[in-house]
Design a protein around this nucleic acid. Structure first.
Lengths: 185, 185
DNA sequence: CCTCCTGTTGGTCGATCGCCCAATACGATC
DNA sequence: GATCGTATTGGGCGATCGACCAACAGGAGG
């Protein structure tokens, strides 16, 4: 038995999933009411029934993905035995990714949209700050000097490498080996 | 005496400048024919007289800025005395920048637009590759091991830090000190 | 002086935008 | 079975989009 409310929540979820895909494929500002509704297989009017505005839909979709990513990586960090391990893990998590993978592009899109949407900027800043803190604690455990600043740089480097891969493809050399220098004692 | 052709080229330049400003203020896909024309102080029709399409205008504006940036930093790199100096220079060049400065945002916008515009992607990849090569040569001069890979990581880290600053503002700790670890022998 | 030609204007085209709303479908509740 | 309320439909609103074009201005070259 499927209640009306359950089907409603399911449609809402489908809209969020469609928005996530389309932000990646077409870009943030080119993801429109009708295109999202079409991808989700529902009437256009439903977008403004389930969400206050298109911006609100895109914001929620992007934040869901961002939080999902950090929630997935966080527990993995806890199992690392050394600072080098930690860096390795971060970049192995990125390595299935060609650089044009959905999650990366979506994150960068969100970063940009955030420069013009205060609500999104604050929420996204919160996600990154949490991730930085978690990473800093792990680095501190492993005796890395200046763990907070180091964590900030490592996190930024991850995003930067991801950004460059989307243009140039995978690097030739051993990127992880170079990045491990960041956490030498 | 100002010839007709000279005034024409001047208008073309004004359109490029207006596009540069507006990509930063409003985003790539939200920079439209009429808005650019209005900012440049000319009639809307002129955009499609001087440029094949809006995309072509945006592409040229972004590439001009990107090439201008690397052309400005390149010669400064030549004067550095050590690998640490080189990293310092790169990040001091970024430090007038709050992270929401025009050049940074424009670059990230271009990165993103490039994922959906092959012509732009190839051109932008060329600019980054040139910069990487120049940086790699300098690092090699200073005896940094694996100069190509290191240059790629440093360049990515620069863009990553820039990206994070646009959300979180300036870092608290000494970022440059951490990044200098990347180029220790 | 008179023609060219380049640069420029301002408006129009069909398409699409975000948002809204009256009408409807249909399970939940009595 | 009748009533209610939530989910959904599809079309309409004014605004704006990229691209196009007829008309025009005015310096360049004969």
């Amino acid at each position: 038995m499927v209640t009306t409310a359950e089907r409603g929540r399911e449609v809402r979820a489908r809209l969020l999933r469609a928005a996530t895909e389309l932000i990646v494929e077409r870009g943030w500002t080119a993801t429109t009411t009708r295109v999202v509704a079409d991808r989700a297989g529902v009437a256009p009017g439903l977008v403004h029934y389930h969400f206050a505005s298109v911006q609100a839909l895109l914001r929620e979709a992007a934040l869901d993905t961002a939080r999902g990513l950090t929630a997935q990586i966080g527990p993995m960090l806890a199992g690392t035995r050394s600072a080098g391990d930690t860096v390795d893990l971060l970049f192995r998590a990125l390595d299935g990714y060609s650089g044009t993978d959905p999650a990366s592009v979506l994150l960068v899109e969100a970063y940009l949209a955030a420069t013009r949407d205060d609500q999104l900027r604050e929420a996204l800043a919160g996600v990154i700050t949490d991730f930085r803190r978690e990473l800093a604690e792990r680095l501190a455990d492993h005796g890395v000097p200046g763990p907070e600043t180091t964590a900030a740089v490592v996190a930024a480097a991850v995003d930067g490498v991801m950004l460059h891969r989307s243009l140039l493809g995978p690097e030739r050399g051993d990127t992880t080996a170079v990045l491990r220098r960041l956490v030498r004692r």
